[in-house]
């Protein structure tokens, strides 16, 4: 940088290759140093493993036995197996139900209803319930799984409410229970997002609506909800992403059972690899997960940019 200030008397030999033009931004040495740690760690421990997994998805790698060391590229064999695997199709269906039902719709709706109803609730009740919802969101996944296993056990409160002490909700309605647990744990975040958005709904619009004689339902449908629409979309997408990554909850509560009823893709991938030892097939299922999350991420980015 300092040489540039001392201009040589005769013109530089070749102006075109001259790197000292100050009107053009250049990569500084300092930025290389600052970027180096992340630039090493992220590729080494994130991007490389994802690429390695893509390769492993086309091999016959096993966790134990002969193929745990001497595995080889098997081409389309894993894909052919996947396309004829009934468990895979069931897993796709369960994933779709869980992610859309519990994530995109369930958590968002629960958070939206909470945020709207909280506006009109009594202060003490509002403090208590919003506190509970946020507490549920902050709990670690293992704790969430534990309290929901207890609640849905044959002697637990949900069975008691069904007035049938022989019922085993976690076994009989496994997908419903894990969906409820997931929505329970995410609704607090959605509620925070919607509460912030509700504060930006102009008060005078609501008052004008009231003056014109709109009922509370009409004010909700015609004024408040249209204002919340962008937040609803953002929340639905975020909840979808978070639900899609929610391996721990389902694995701890049901381990994909009973009879694959809650076998979402991440759980299926884990079980294939570390219970049935088919690491290669497990990696292929992981690749399918990456493809789906990339699609979801693209929608997220696209919507974020089109709003600006």
């Amino acid at each position: 940088m300092t040489e540039a200030t001392v201009m040589p008397l005769k013109p530089a030999p070749s102006r075109r290759s001259g790197p000292r033009r100050l009107d053009r931004p250049r990569l500084k040495l300092a930025s290389l140093f600052l970027l180096a740690p992340a630039g090493i760690l992220l590729p080494a421990l994130f991007i490389l493993p994802v690429c390695y997994a893509i390769y492993l998805g086309f091999t016959n790698l096993q966790l134990v036995g002969l193929h745990s060391v001497h595995y080889r590229f098997t081409g389309w064999a894993n894909i052919a197996f996947m396309l004829s695997d009934a468990s895979f199709y069931q897993s796709l269906w369960v994933t779709a139900l869980f992610v859309v039902g519990s994530g995109a719709v369930g958590s968002t709706l629960l958070g939206l209803v909470l945020a709207i109803a909280l506006q009109q609730a009594m202060p003490a009740l509002r403090m208590a319930v919003s506190g509970l919802a946020i507490l549920a969101w902050t709990l670690p996944p293992t704790t969430i799984a534990l309290v929901w296993i207890a609640s849905a056990s044959p002697s637990g409160p949900i069975a008691a409410m069904m007035a049938d002490m022989k019922a085993d909700p976690l076994y009989d309605h496994a997908l419903l229970i894990v969906s409820a647990a997931n929505a329970w744990s995410l609704a607090g975040l959605a509620m925070i997002m919607f509460s912030a958005a509700l504060r930006n709904v102009p008060k005078d619009m609501i008052e004008a609506g009231t003056l014109e004689g709109a009922s509370s339902v009409q004010r909700m449908m015609r004024i408040t909800l249209p204002f919340l629409k962008p937040t609803i979309v953002t929340s639905a997408l975020l909840m979808t992403l978070l639900t899609f990554g929610n391996f721990t909850l389902i694995y701890l509560m049901t381990a994909g059972g009973p009879d694959n009823a809650t076998n979402i893709l991440p759980v299926y991938s884990y079980l294939e690899g570390f219970k049935f030892f088919n690491l290669g097939y497990s990696a292929l299922l992981g690749n399918i997960i990456v493809i789906f999350s990339a699609l979801l991420g693209s929608v997220f980015v696209f919507l974020g940019q089109s709003r600006r």
Partner: peptide
Amino acid sequence: GVPITVLIVPM
């Protein structure tokens, strides 16, 4: 946005 599950086999 990539779920951590996909990292377990390669890692």
